[in-house]
Design a protein around this nucleic acid. Structure first.
Lengths: 237, 237
DNA sequence: CAAATAGTGTCTTTGAGACACTATCGT
DNA sequence: ACGATAGTGTCTCAAAGACACTATTTG
Protein backbone atom coordinates (compact mmCIF):
# COMPACT_ATOMS: atom_id res chain seq x y z
CA UNK A 1 0.00 0.00 0.00
CA UNK A 2 2.72 2.48 0.95
CA UNK A 3 6.24 2.62 2.26
CA UNK A 4 6.57 2.64 6.01
CA UNK A 5 8.80 4.87 8.06
CA UNK A 6 10.70 3.60 11.05
CA UNK A 7 8.29 5.24 13.48
CA UNK A 8 5.38 3.47 11.93
CA UNK A 9 7.02 0.07 11.89
CA UNK A 10 6.63 -0.33 15.61
CA UNK A 11 2.91 0.21 15.33
CA UNK A 12 2.49 -2.09 12.41
CA UNK A 13 4.45 -4.89 14.07
CA UNK A 14 2.47 -4.48 17.23
CA UNK A 15 -0.73 -4.50 15.23
CA UNK A 16 0.16 -7.52 13.14
CA UNK A 17 1.11 -9.59 16.14
CA UNK A 18 -1.96 -8.72 18.15
CA UNK A 19 -4.51 -9.12 15.38
CA UNK A 20 -4.42 -12.55 13.82
CA UNK A 21 -7.31 -12.19 11.45
CA UNK A 22 -9.23 -9.26 10.01
CA UNK A 23 -12.92 -9.13 9.24
CA UNK A 24 -13.88 -8.56 5.64
CA UNK A 25 -15.63 -5.32 4.75
CA UNK A 26 -18.39 -5.08 2.18
CA UNK A 27 -20.87 -2.44 1.10
CA UNK A 28 -24.46 -3.48 0.53
CA UNK A 29 -26.39 -1.16 -1.75
CA UNK A 30 -30.12 -0.55 -1.59
CA UNK A 31 -31.16 0.90 -4.93
CA UNK A 32 -34.64 2.34 -4.54
CA UNK A 33 -36.96 3.53 -7.25
CA UNK A 34 -40.66 4.12 -7.77
CA UNK A 35 -42.42 2.06 -10.42
CA UNK A 36 -46.20 1.76 -10.84
CA UNK A 37 -46.73 4.04 -7.83
CA UNK A 38 -44.83 1.56 -5.68
CA UNK A 39 -41.52 1.88 -3.86
CA UNK A 40 -39.22 -0.86 -5.11
CA UNK A 41 -35.69 -2.03 -4.37
CA UNK A 42 -33.15 -3.86 -6.51
CA UNK A 43 -32.48 -7.39 -5.31
CA UNK A 44 -30.90 -10.51 -6.78
CA UNK A 45 -31.79 -14.12 -6.24
CA UNK A 46 -28.97 -16.12 -4.67
CA UNK A 47 -27.78 -19.08 -6.70
CA UNK A 48 -25.47 -20.45 -4.00
CA UNK A 49 -25.72 -21.56 -0.42
CA UNK A 50 -26.33 -20.14 2.08
CA UNK A 51 -29.82 -18.72 1.46
CA UNK A 52 -29.93 -20.33 -1.99
CA UNK A 53 -33.03 -19.08 -3.80
CA UNK A 54 -33.55 -16.17 -1.43
CA UNK A 55 -33.44 -12.55 -2.45
CA UNK A 56 -30.36 -10.60 -1.42
CA UNK A 57 -29.14 -7.04 -1.72
CA UNK A 58 -26.33 -6.48 -4.20
CA UNK A 59 -23.01 -5.93 -2.49
CA UNK A 60 -19.30 -5.78 -3.19
CA UNK A 61 -16.22 -6.19 -1.06
CA UNK A 62 -14.30 -3.01 -0.34
CA UNK A 63 -10.90 -3.03 -1.97
CA UNK A 64 -7.79 -2.14 0.00
CA UNK A 65 -7.27 1.03 -2.01
CA UNK A 66 -10.91 1.87 -2.52
CA UNK A 67 -13.02 4.22 -0.42
CA UNK A 68 -16.45 3.12 0.75
CA UNK A 69 -18.07 5.54 -1.68
CA UNK A 70 -16.01 4.20 -4.57
CA UNK A 71 -17.10 0.69 -3.67
CA UNK A 72 -20.73 1.85 -3.72
CA UNK A 73 -20.25 3.47 -7.14
CA UNK A 74 -18.66 0.30 -8.44
CA UNK A 75 -21.50 -1.81 -7.08
CA UNK A 76 -24.17 0.45 -8.51
CA UNK A 77 -22.47 0.52 -11.88
CA UNK A 78 -22.22 -3.25 -12.27
CA UNK A 79 -25.81 -3.61 -11.11
CA UNK A 80 -27.50 -0.83 -13.09
CA UNK A 81 -24.94 0.73 -15.44
CA UNK A 82 -25.49 4.10 -13.78
CA UNK A 83 -22.48 6.21 -12.85
CA UNK A 84 -24.03 9.19 -11.11
CA UNK A 85 -26.81 8.93 -8.61
CA UNK A 86 -27.66 10.16 -5.18
CA UNK A 87 -26.68 7.84 -2.33
CA UNK A 88 -26.13 8.11 1.38
CA UNK A 89 -24.71 5.88 4.07
CA UNK A 90 -27.28 4.11 6.22
CA UNK A 91 -25.70 2.00 8.92
CA UNK A 92 -22.94 -0.51 9.50
CA UNK A 93 -23.88 -4.05 10.42
CA UNK A 94 -21.30 -6.00 12.35
CA UNK A 95 -22.83 -9.01 14.06
CA UNK A 96 -20.35 -11.85 14.16
CA UNK A 97 -22.76 -14.38 12.69
CA UNK A 98 -24.59 -12.20 10.19
CA UNK A 99 -22.93 -14.17 7.38
CA UNK A 100 -22.52 -17.88 8.24
CA UNK A 101 -19.58 -18.32 5.89
CA UNK A 102 -17.18 -15.79 7.30
CA UNK A 103 -16.96 -12.56 9.24
CA UNK A 104 -18.21 -9.77 7.04
CA UNK A 105 -18.88 -6.27 8.25
CA UNK A 106 -21.31 -4.56 5.91
CA UNK A 107 -21.64 -0.82 5.42
CA UNK A 108 -25.06 -0.23 3.90
CA UNK A 109 -25.86 2.60 1.53
CA UNK A 110 -29.10 3.57 -0.08
CA UNK A 111 -29.24 4.96 -3.61
CA UNK A 112 -32.33 6.72 -4.94
CA UNK A 113 -33.05 6.94 -8.65
CA UNK A 114 -35.97 7.64 -10.94
CA UNK A 115 -37.35 4.74 -12.93
CA UNK A 116 -36.52 6.68 -16.11
CA UNK A 117 -32.83 6.89 -15.33
CA UNK A 118 -32.79 3.31 -14.15
CA UNK A 119 -34.23 1.99 -17.41
CA UNK A 120 -32.25 4.30 -19.67
CA UNK A 121 -28.93 2.63 -18.86
CA UNK A 122 -30.22 -0.88 -18.52
CA UNK A 123 -27.93 -2.64 -20.96
CA UNK A 124 -27.66 -6.25 -19.82
CA UNK A 125 -31.12 -7.70 -19.35
CA UNK A 126 -34.02 -5.71 -18.03
CA UNK A 127 -33.34 -4.05 -14.71
CA UNK A 128 -37.08 -4.11 -14.07
CA UNK A 129 -36.77 -7.83 -13.46
CA UNK A 130 -34.72 -7.07 -10.37
CA UNK A 131 -37.16 -4.61 -8.83
CA UNK A 132 -39.18 -5.86 -5.88
CA UNK A 133 -41.84 -3.93 -3.97
CA UNK A 134 -40.41 -2.93 -0.62
CA UNK A 135 -43.55 -3.66 1.38
CA UNK A 136 -43.61 -7.12 -0.19
CA UNK A 137 -40.06 -8.15 0.69
CA UNK A 138 -40.64 -6.83 4.21
CA UNK A 139 -43.58 -9.14 4.94
CA UNK A 140 -42.78 -11.40 7.92
CA UNK A 141 -43.15 -14.70 6.08
CA UNK A 142 -40.83 -13.71 3.24
CA UNK A 143 -37.32 -15.02 3.81
CA UNK A 144 -34.46 -12.85 2.64
CA UNK A 145 -30.75 -13.61 2.70
CA UNK A 146 -28.62 -12.74 5.74
CA UNK A 147 -29.83 -9.72 7.75
CA UNK A 148 -31.03 -7.99 4.61
CA UNK A 149 -34.62 -7.70 5.75
CA UNK A 150 -33.49 -5.74 8.77
CA UNK A 151 -31.36 -3.51 6.57
CA UNK A 152 -34.24 -2.81 4.21
CA UNK A 153 -36.56 -2.09 7.14
CA UNK A 154 -34.00 0.37 8.48
CA UNK A 155 -33.82 2.12 5.11
CA UNK A 156 -37.60 2.16 4.78
CA UNK A 157 -37.88 3.97 8.09
CA UNK A 158 -35.19 6.46 7.10
CA UNK A 159 -37.01 7.22 3.85
CA UNK A 160 -40.31 7.66 5.65
CA UNK A 161 -38.80 10.04 8.18
CA UNK A 162 -37.04 12.12 5.57
CA UNK A 163 -40.16 12.41 3.45
CA UNK A 164 -42.28 13.33 6.48
CA UNK A 165 -39.82 16.14 7.23
CA UNK A 166 -40.29 17.32 3.64
CA UNK A 167 -36.62 16.88 2.88
CA UNK A 168 -35.74 16.92 -0.80
CA UNK A 169 -35.22 13.15 -1.11
CA UNK A 170 -38.42 12.80 -3.13
CA UNK A 171 -36.84 14.71 -6.01
CA UNK A 172 -34.39 11.86 -6.56
CA UNK A 173 -37.31 9.79 -7.81
CA UNK A 174 -38.58 12.47 -10.23
CA UNK A 175 -37.54 13.26 -13.76
CA UNK A 176 -36.21 16.76 -14.33
CA UNK A 177 -39.64 18.24 -15.03
CA UNK A 178 -42.67 17.09 -13.12
CA UNK A 179 -46.15 18.15 -12.11
CA UNK A 180 -47.11 18.87 -8.52
CA UNK A 181 -49.71 16.09 -8.46
CA UNK A 182 -46.94 13.64 -9.43
CA UNK A 183 -44.63 15.03 -6.77
CA UNK A 184 -47.39 14.75 -4.20
CA UNK A 185 -47.96 11.14 -5.17
CA UNK A 186 -44.26 10.38 -4.62
CA UNK A 187 -44.30 11.98 -1.17
CA UNK A 188 -47.42 9.98 -0.36
CA UNK A 189 -45.72 6.74 -1.40
CA UNK A 190 -42.61 7.53 0.64
CA UNK A 191 -44.60 8.58 3.70
CA UNK A 192 -47.18 5.86 3.17
CA UNK A 193 -50.09 8.19 3.88
CA UNK A 194 -52.38 10.49 1.89
CA UNK A 195 -51.82 14.24 1.88
CA UNK A 196 -54.11 17.21 1.39
CA UNK A 197 -53.48 18.89 -1.93
CA UNK A 198 -53.64 22.50 -0.77
CA UNK A 199 -51.44 21.90 2.26
CA UNK A 200 -48.92 19.92 0.24
CA UNK A 201 -48.59 22.69 -2.29
CA UNK A 202 -48.02 25.29 0.38
CA UNK A 203 -45.24 23.14 1.81
CA UNK A 204 -43.36 22.42 -1.40
CA UNK A 205 -43.85 25.77 -3.13
CA UNK A 206 -40.46 27.12 -1.99
CA UNK A 207 -38.77 23.91 -3.15
CA UNK A 208 -39.90 24.11 -6.77
CA UNK A 209 -39.87 26.54 -9.69
CA UNK A 210 -42.71 26.83 -12.18
CA UNK A 211 -41.89 26.44 -15.89
CA UNK A 212 -43.81 27.72 -18.89
CA UNK A 213 -44.77 24.23 -19.92
CA UNK A 214 -47.79 22.16 -19.10
CA UNK A 215 -49.03 18.68 -19.71
CA UNK A 216 -51.65 18.19 -22.42
CA UNK A 217 -53.65 15.59 -24.27
CA UNK A 218 -55.44 14.18 -21.26
CA UNK A 219 -59.16 14.43 -20.72
CA UNK A 220 -58.89 16.93 -17.92
CA UNK A 221 -57.30 20.21 -17.01
CA UNK A 222 -53.56 20.29 -17.85
CA UNK A 223 -50.98 20.47 -15.10
CA UNK A 224 -48.07 22.87 -14.98
CA UNK A 225 -44.55 21.46 -15.09
CA UNK A 226 -42.08 22.37 -12.38
CA UNK A 227 -38.37 21.88 -11.79
CA UNK A 228 -36.53 21.60 -8.50
CA UNK A 229 -35.46 24.92 -7.01
CA UNK A 230 -31.70 24.53 -6.77
CA UNK A 231 -31.46 27.54 -4.42
CA UNK A 232 -33.78 26.02 -1.86
CA UNK A 233 -31.15 24.42 0.36
CA UNK A 234 -29.02 27.54 0.23
CA UNK A 235 -31.92 29.53 1.67
CA UNK A 236 -32.11 27.20 4.63
CA UNK A 237 -29.50 29.14 6.67
CA UNK B 1 -13.40 -19.22 12.83
CA UNK B 2 -15.68 -22.09 11.84
CA UNK B 3 -15.67 -25.24 9.78
CA UNK B 4 -16.58 -24.80 6.16
CA UNK B 5 -18.95 -26.95 4.15
CA UNK B 6 -18.19 -27.95 0.60
CA UNK B 7 -20.70 -25.45 -0.77
CA UNK B 8 -19.03 -22.61 1.00
CA UNK B 9 -15.51 -23.53 -0.05
CA UNK B 10 -16.11 -22.37 -3.55
CA UNK B 11 -17.09 -18.95 -2.30
CA UNK B 12 -14.22 -18.68 0.10
CA UNK B 13 -11.68 -19.68 -2.51
CA UNK B 14 -13.10 -17.24 -4.96
CA UNK B 15 -13.04 -14.55 -2.32
CA UNK B 16 -9.51 -15.30 -1.17
CA UNK B 17 -8.14 -15.27 -4.67
CA UNK B 18 -9.84 -12.04 -5.67
CA UNK B 19 -9.09 -10.05 -2.52
CA UNK B 20 -5.42 -9.85 -1.74
CA UNK B 21 -5.58 -7.61 1.27
CA UNK B 22 -8.31 -6.61 3.69
CA UNK B 23 -8.74 -3.23 5.35
CA UNK B 24 -8.56 -3.16 9.13
CA UNK B 25 -11.70 -2.25 11.04
CA UNK B 26 -11.68 -0.16 14.19
CA UNK B 27 -14.30 1.51 16.33
CA UNK B 28 -13.66 5.05 17.53
CA UNK B 29 -15.62 5.99 20.61
CA UNK B 30 -16.75 9.51 21.48
CA UNK B 31 -17.50 9.55 25.20
CA UNK B 32 -19.45 12.71 25.93
CA UNK B 33 -20.27 14.15 29.31
CA UNK B 34 -21.22 17.49 30.81
CA UNK B 35 -18.86 19.03 33.35
CA UNK B 36 -18.99 22.63 34.59
CA UNK B 37 -21.96 23.33 32.31
CA UNK B 38 -19.82 22.40 29.32
CA UNK B 39 -20.10 19.54 26.86
CA UNK B 40 -16.85 17.59 26.96
CA UNK B 41 -15.42 14.57 25.17
CA UNK B 42 -12.82 12.01 26.24
CA UNK B 43 -9.61 12.26 24.24
CA UNK B 44 -6.06 11.03 24.62
CA UNK B 45 -2.82 12.66 23.59
CA UNK B 46 -0.90 10.64 21.04
CA UNK B 47 2.61 9.62 22.10
CA UNK B 48 3.60 8.21 18.70
CA UNK B 49 3.79 9.39 15.14
CA UNK B 50 1.75 10.21 13.22
CA UNK B 51 0.06 13.18 14.90
CA UNK B 52 2.41 12.87 17.90
CA UNK B 53 1.21 15.25 20.61
CA UNK B 54 -2.21 15.71 19.06
CA UNK B 55 -5.44 14.72 20.72
CA UNK B 56 -7.16 11.62 19.39
CA UNK B 57 -10.34 9.72 20.09
CA UNK B 58 -9.92 6.42 21.88
CA UNK B 59 -10.37 3.47 19.56
CA UNK B 60 -9.86 -0.26 19.36
CA UNK B 61 -9.55 -2.71 16.53
CA UNK B 62 -12.51 -4.99 16.02
CA UNK B 63 -11.65 -8.60 16.75
CA UNK B 64 -12.56 -11.35 14.31
CA UNK B 65 -15.06 -12.84 16.75
CA UNK B 66 -16.23 -9.59 18.26
CA UNK B 67 -19.29 -7.60 17.25
CA UNK B 68 -18.98 -3.85 16.74
CA UNK B 69 -20.95 -3.23 19.94
CA UNK B 70 -18.69 -5.55 21.90
CA UNK B 71 -15.68 -3.67 20.60
CA UNK B 72 -17.27 -0.41 21.75
CA UNK B 73 -17.94 -1.85 25.21
CA UNK B 74 -14.37 -3.06 25.42
CA UNK B 75 -13.04 0.33 24.39
CA UNK B 76 -15.26 2.18 26.83
CA UNK B 77 -14.28 -0.15 29.65
CA UNK B 78 -10.54 0.23 29.22
CA UNK B 79 -10.96 3.98 28.91
CA UNK B 80 -13.39 4.67 31.74
CA UNK B 81 -14.01 1.46 33.68
CA UNK B 82 -17.71 1.68 32.89
CA UNK B 83 -19.54 -1.40 31.71
CA UNK B 84 -23.03 -0.11 31.00
CA UNK B 85 -23.76 3.09 29.24
CA UNK B 86 -25.87 4.40 26.43
CA UNK B 87 -24.19 4.47 23.04
CA UNK B 88 -25.24 4.66 19.44
CA UNK B 89 -23.56 4.27 16.10
CA UNK B 90 -22.68 7.50 14.32
CA UNK B 91 -21.09 6.92 10.96
CA UNK B 92 -18.44 4.84 9.23
CA UNK B 93 -15.38 6.59 7.89
CA UNK B 94 -13.62 4.86 5.06
CA UNK B 95 -11.36 7.24 3.18
CA UNK B 96 -8.32 5.40 1.92
CA UNK B 97 -5.85 7.89 3.38
CA UNK B 98 -7.58 8.71 6.65
CA UNK B 99 -4.79 6.92 8.52
CA UNK B 100 -1.39 7.40 6.87
CA UNK B 101 -0.01 4.16 8.30
CA UNK B 102 -2.45 1.69 6.88
CA UNK B 103 -5.98 1.27 5.62
CA UNK B 104 -8.32 1.51 8.58
CA UNK B 105 -12.07 1.76 8.28
CA UNK B 106 -13.47 3.31 11.44
CA UNK B 107 -16.99 2.84 12.74
CA UNK B 108 -17.67 5.71 15.12
CA UNK B 109 -19.95 5.46 18.13
CA UNK B 110 -20.94 8.08 20.63
CA UNK B 111 -21.45 7.21 24.29
CA UNK B 112 -23.26 9.58 26.64
CA UNK B 113 -22.69 9.48 30.38
CA UNK B 114 -23.24 11.69 33.41
CA UNK B 115 -20.17 13.14 35.06
CA UNK B 116 -21.17 11.34 38.26
CA UNK B 117 -21.05 7.90 36.69
CA UNK B 118 -17.88 8.77 34.85
CA UNK B 119 -16.04 9.76 38.02
CA UNK B 120 -17.44 6.94 40.15
CA UNK B 121 -15.58 4.24 38.27
CA UNK B 122 -12.46 6.20 37.53
CA UNK B 123 -9.86 3.81 38.94
CA UNK B 124 -6.62 4.46 37.09
CA UNK B 125 -5.81 8.14 37.19
CA UNK B 126 -8.43 10.85 37.03
CA UNK B 127 -10.73 10.56 34.04
CA UNK B 128 -11.32 14.30 34.32
CA UNK B 129 -7.83 14.82 32.93
CA UNK B 130 -9.02 13.33 29.66
CA UNK B 131 -12.07 15.53 29.27
CA UNK B 132 -11.85 18.30 26.69
CA UNK B 133 -14.51 20.90 25.91
CA UNK B 134 -16.06 20.03 22.57
CA UNK B 135 -16.25 23.58 21.28
CA UNK B 136 -12.54 23.97 22.10
CA UNK B 137 -11.30 20.91 20.21
CA UNK B 138 -13.46 21.96 17.26
CA UNK B 139 -11.82 25.37 16.81
CA UNK B 140 -10.25 25.61 13.36
CA UNK B 141 -6.67 26.23 14.54
CA UNK B 142 -6.66 23.22 16.86
CA UNK B 143 -5.05 20.20 15.23
CA UNK B 144 -6.48 16.81 16.07
CA UNK B 145 -5.28 13.40 14.97
CA UNK B 146 -6.54 11.80 11.74
CA UNK B 147 -10.09 12.81 10.73
CA UNK B 148 -11.18 13.00 14.34
CA UNK B 149 -12.22 16.66 14.18
CA UNK B 150 -14.65 15.80 11.42
CA UNK B 151 -15.98 12.90 13.45
CA UNK B 152 -16.50 15.07 16.51
CA UNK B 153 -18.18 17.76 14.44
CA UNK B 154 -20.52 15.12 13.04
CA UNK B 155 -21.38 13.93 16.53
CA UNK B 156 -21.86 17.49 17.75
CA UNK B 157 -24.41 18.11 15.03
CA UNK B 158 -26.20 14.86 15.81
CA UNK B 159 -26.42 15.79 19.49
CA UNK B 160 -27.72 19.26 18.66
CA UNK B 161 -30.39 17.88 16.34
CA UNK B 162 -31.54 15.28 18.82
CA UNK B 163 -31.75 17.79 21.63
CA UNK B 164 -33.62 20.28 19.45
CA UNK B 165 -36.16 17.56 18.68
CA UNK B 166 -36.53 17.05 22.45
CA UNK B 167 -35.43 13.44 22.20
CA UNK B 168 -34.51 11.81 25.48
CA UNK B 169 -30.74 11.96 24.93
CA UNK B 170 -30.36 14.67 27.56
CA UNK B 171 -31.31 12.21 30.28
CA UNK B 172 -28.12 10.26 29.67
CA UNK B 173 -26.24 13.19 31.16
CA UNK B 174 -28.43 13.42 34.29
CA UNK B 175 -28.25 11.55 37.55
CA UNK B 176 -31.31 9.51 38.43
CA UNK B 177 -33.05 12.38 40.19
CA UNK B 178 -32.79 15.90 38.89
CA UNK B 179 -34.53 19.27 38.97
CA UNK B 180 -36.17 20.78 35.92
CA UNK B 181 -33.86 23.82 35.96
CA UNK B 182 -30.89 21.40 35.76
CA UNK B 183 -32.53 19.46 32.93
CA UNK B 184 -33.22 22.70 31.10
CA UNK B 185 -29.59 23.73 31.46
CA UNK B 186 -28.50 20.43 29.90
CA UNK B 187 -30.82 20.89 26.94
CA UNK B 188 -29.50 24.42 26.53
CA UNK B 189 -25.92 23.17 26.50
CA UNK B 190 -26.73 20.46 23.96
CA UNK B 191 -28.73 22.81 21.73
CA UNK B 192 -26.33 25.68 22.34
CA UNK B 193 -29.12 28.19 22.81
CA UNK B 194 -31.19 29.57 25.70
CA UNK B 195 -34.72 28.33 26.29
CA UNK B 196 -37.78 29.87 27.88
CA UNK B 197 -38.56 28.28 31.19
CA UNK B 198 -42.33 27.98 30.82
CA UNK B 199 -42.14 26.61 27.29
CA UNK B 200 -39.43 24.15 28.21
CA UNK B 201 -41.47 22.78 31.09
CA UNK B 202 -44.52 22.31 28.90
CA UNK B 203 -42.38 20.33 26.46
CA UNK B 204 -40.69 18.00 28.91
CA UNK B 205 -43.59 17.49 31.33
CA UNK B 206 -44.69 14.20 29.68
CA UNK B 207 -41.10 12.93 29.76
CA UNK B 208 -40.62 13.24 33.53
CA UNK B 209 -42.30 12.16 36.76
CA UNK B 210 -42.42 14.32 39.86
CA UNK B 211 -41.08 12.83 43.09
CA UNK B 212 -41.91 13.79 46.67
CA UNK B 213 -38.43 15.18 47.22
CA UNK B 214 -37.06 18.64 46.77
CA UNK B 215 -33.72 20.36 46.97
CA UNK B 216 -33.02 22.38 50.11
CA UNK B 217 -30.34 24.42 51.84
CA UNK B 218 -29.93 27.02 49.15
CA UNK B 219 -30.81 30.66 49.59
CA UNK B 220 -33.84 30.51 47.36
CA UNK B 221 -36.98 28.54 46.70
CA UNK B 222 -36.34 24.78 46.62
CA UNK B 223 -36.77 22.84 43.41
CA UNK B 224 -38.68 19.61 43.04
CA UNK B 225 -36.83 16.48 42.05
CA UNK B 226 -37.97 14.50 39.05
CA UNK B 227 -37.14 11.15 37.50
CA UNK B 228 -37.35 10.11 33.86
CA UNK B 229 -40.76 8.76 32.83
CA UNK B 230 -39.92 5.27 31.61
CA UNK B 231 -43.31 4.97 29.89
CA UNK B 232 -42.76 8.02 27.73
CA UNK B 233 -41.40 6.24 24.67
CA UNK B 234 -44.11 3.59 24.90
CA UNK B 235 -46.72 6.32 24.67
CA UNK B 236 -45.22 7.55 21.44
CA UNK B 237 -47.18 5.09 19.27
C1' DC C 1 -72.38 19.56 -20.66
C1' DA C 2 -70.27 15.80 -18.05
C1' DA C 3 -66.32 13.60 -16.25
C1' DA C 4 -61.97 14.09 -14.56
C1' DT C 5 -58.16 16.12 -12.65
C1' DA C 6 -55.69 20.79 -11.54
C1' DG C 7 -55.48 24.37 -8.56
C1' DT C 8 -57.05 28.02 -4.69
C1' DG C 9 -59.31 30.29 -0.40
C1' DT C 10 -60.06 30.04 4.18
C1' DC C 11 -61.42 28.27 8.69
C1' DT C 12 -59.93 25.67 12.83
C1' DT C 13 -56.70 23.82 15.82
C1' DT C 14 -52.18 23.16 17.59
C1' DG C 15 -47.99 24.41 19.24
C1' DA C 16 -43.78 27.36 19.41
C1' DG C 17 -42.27 31.50 21.31
C1' DA C 18 -42.29 35.49 24.25
C1' DC C 19 -43.21 37.71 28.46
C1' DA C 20 -45.15 38.87 32.84
C1' DC C 21 -46.49 37.36 36.85
C1' DT C 22 -46.57 34.64 41.48
C1' DA C 23 -44.17 31.38 45.01
C1' DT C 24 -40.80 30.04 48.43
C1' DC C 25 -36.55 29.50 50.23
C1' DG C 26 -32.18 31.60 53.24
C1' DT C 27 -30.25 35.63 55.27
C1' DA D 1 -37.91 42.74 53.81
C1' DC D 2 -34.81 41.38 50.11
C1' DG D 3 -32.22 38.76 46.87
C1' DA D 4 -32.36 34.79 44.37
C1' DT D 5 -34.14 31.05 41.99
C1' DA D 6 -38.54 28.03 41.25
C1' DG D 7 -42.61 27.73 39.05
C1' DT D 8 -47.25 29.35 36.40
C1' DG D 9 -50.75 31.94 33.31
C1' DT D 10 -51.62 33.68 29.11
C1' DC D 11 -51.11 36.31 24.82
C1' DT D 12 -49.47 36.25 19.97
C1' DC D 13 -48.34 34.36 15.80
C1' DA D 14 -47.14 30.79 12.47
C1' DA D 15 -47.91 26.46 10.69
C1' DA D 16 -50.49 21.98 10.23
C1' DG D 17 -54.68 20.06 9.07
C1' DA D 18 -59.21 19.82 7.11
C1' DC D 19 -62.53 21.04 3.79
C1' DA D 20 -64.99 23.47 0.24
C1' DC D 21 -64.77 25.80 -3.60
C1' DT D 22 -63.31 27.26 -8.54
C1' DA D 23 -60.73 26.25 -13.12
C1' DT D 24 -59.64 23.97 -17.42
C1' DT D 25 -59.10 20.36 -20.33
C1' DT D 26 -61.22 16.19 -23.55
C1' DG D 27 -65.01 13.60 -25.35
Amino acid sequence: MKKTTSEEKEFLQQYDSSMFEKPSVAVDVLIFTIEDDTLKVVMVERSEFPYKGCLALPGVFVGIDESLEDAVKRGVKVETGLTDMYFEQLYTWGDVKRDPRMRIISVSYMALVSIDQLCAKSANGNIRDYLYPVEEVLTPDKELAFDHKEIIAYARTRIKNKAAAYSDIAFNFMSEKFTLPKLQKVYEILMDKPLYKANFRKKVSPMVLETEESTSGEAHRPSKLYVKNADYNALEE
